[in-house]
């Protein structure tokens, strides 16, 4: 069973998304801020991380940078998730931040449940 770590400060979103991914046969681990997320990556060694960008303590970009700088952890695919203005995110983020953080995919919130599942499946099958 593949393990997915979802890091998002929105507890409601985490809860609902966990139900969704559970139903698709994933083991879902939750974390509610950047620091906790980073700790859980190290402790749980998930197969994939879904990272919200705007979070307290440590934001998603920073968490991603740390992950991708780690020789062991950088193999874990990361999907960035953000509610920032969609077009802004796509054009500015993917070129500037995307290169720096080397995230494997990004999704603009609000995300269609089917779309999220598809992206997760795609990344895990690539691995």
């Amino acid at each position: 069973m593949k393990k997915v770590l979802l890091v998002d400060d929105d507890v409601d979103f985490c809860e609902a998304t966990k139900l969704l991914l559970d139903s698709k046969g994933y083991e879902v681990v939750l974390a509610y801020d950047g620091k906790e997320g980073l700790g859980k990556v190290r402790a749980e060694k998930p197969d994939l991380v879904i990272l919200d960008v705007m979070m307290p303590e440590m934001n998603g970009y920073d968490v991603c940078v740390v992950l991708k700088a780690d020789a062991e952890l950088k193999k874990i695919p990361v999907i960035l998730l953000t509610a920032v203005d969609q077009a802004f995110f796509k054009t500015t983020y993917t070129r500037a931040m995307g290169l720096m953080t080397e995230a494997d995919d990004y999704i603009a919130k609000p995300v269609e449940p089917g779309e999220l599942v598809k992206r997760v499946e795609d990344l895990l099958s690539k691995k």
């Binding site: 609902a16 998304t17 919130k109 609000p110 995300v111």
Partner: peptide, 13 residues
């Protein structure tokens, strides 16, 4: 957008 995305996910599941 943040609450709307929660809402969408909750209703969908």
């Amino acid at each position: 957008k943040a609450p709307l995305s929660s809402l969408l996910m909750q209703i969908s599941v």
